[in-house]
């Protein structure tokens, strides 16, 4: 389902914050802040994550010269049960708030809703984005941090990062949102929670194909199509899917993946990075800056999310996945 944004809401400012491990990220220099303590000097990982979200929002407000009360809407989510880090951060922000969950695709689903609210003139300033925290997420979805389970080459590393964008009225000198596609939930029967890329690639394929079709575009109309956190293996699978539908090599080169590139070639992270904060922190730092500098004129961001829970996995369910896409242009 493609949505056209006639008023072209703009990304007015971005804020990205990352944890200490993310110093090793190739995108490190694009982040606004990196914190030394992974708990942000709080008692728990979850409190640390809330602090990280707050900090990203404060960075945005400072950049845009706004105060808490100027923010009309806060649209955000994370991966922790009932999204308490986001909810607790929203308590401090004091804006109208909708918690959103599309797993790691929340970085884009929140942006779509923020753009809609702006398009409706219901919002002058809306903050949208997502975050994830390695320790808080891993202990919930997989094993305790220090548990010695052997991970396969397809496993990904959940990043500790938050990325947020301030959405407002169109400004021709800033990256602007022209269209978005809300993805369906796709399930090709993957059951392995250590192969998220394989589970999510079909969802990315479905959403990107739907977007191109709905917009009557070709892959080559884009300078960049960046998926969220398919990882190294998932990105290869996605490219193979497009290759099978007739895409040429020069078109396949348009595809990149935030998770696949996040930690460079370091093998300790296996297939790359994942987590809602992975795509959010890359989109709302590196991509925004590259667009502002004029390197990219038209970009499709497609964040993917695996909609599993530890319970659904234990109950033997397959992993349904979704992907949401947004088309951003720079005049």
């Amino acid at each position: 389902m493609v949505i056209l944004f006639k008023t072209k809401p703009s990304i007015l400012a971005c804020g990205s914050v990352a944890g200490p491990e993310e110093r090793k990220s190739v995108f490190y220099s694009y982040f606004d802040a990196v914190v030394e303590d992974e708990r942000w000097n709080q008692k728990t990982n979850e409190q640390g994550q809330a602090k990280m979200i707050q900090e990203a929002c404060e960075i945005i407000m400072n950049k845009a010269n706004l105060k808490n009360l100027d923010i009309d809407f806060f649209l955000s989510g994370d991966l922790v049960n009932q999204m308490t880090p986001t909810n607790f951060a929203a308590r401090e922000l004091a804006s109208s708030f909708i918690g959103m969950f599309s797993a790691c695709a929340t970085s884009i689903s929140s942006l779509i809703v923020a753009s809609l609210l702006t398009e409706l003139s219901a919002s002058e300033y809306a903050i949208a984005g997502a975050s994830s925290h390695h320790n808080a997420t891993e202990r919930q979805f997989r094993y305790p941090i220090n548990y010695g389970g052997q991970k396969p080459a397809t496993a990904q590393w959940t990043v500790t990062a938050a990325g947020y964008a301030l959405i407002g009225k169109h400004n021709p000198s800033l990256p602007s949102i022209v269209a978005g596609t809300v993805g369906k939930v796709i399930d090709y029967g993957e059951v392995n929670p250590f192969h998220m890329g394989g589970a999510m690639a079909p969802a990315a394929f479905d959403t990107i194909t739907a977007h191109l079709k709905g917009r009557n575009q070709k892959i080559s109309d884009y300078d960049l199509i960046m998926t969220g956190d398919l990882g190294k293996i998932g990105l290869k699978i996605l490219k193979a899917m497009f290759a099978q539908t007739g895409a040429q090599q020069n078109e396949l080169d348009v595809f990149r993946d935030a998770g696949a590139e996040f930690y460079g070639e370091d093998e300790a992270y296996l297939a790359g990075a994942s987590g809602a904060g992975c795509s959010a922190a890359v989109y709302y730092s590196y991509i925004e800056q590259q667009m502002k500098s004029g390197r990219y004129k038209r970009v499709l961001l497609c964040a993917t999310g695996a909609l599993l829970s530890p319970l659904s996995f234990q109950q033997g369910e397959t992993i349904p996945c979704t992907a949401h896409a947004i088309e951003i242009t720079m005049e």
Binding site: G19, E21, I145, W157, D266, A268, Y269
Partner: peptide, 9 residues
């Protein structure tokens, strides 16, 4: 004594 730390290497 300990606190879990999320470091890859």
């Amino acid at each position: 004594i300990f606190k879990p730390k999320g470091k890859a290497n």
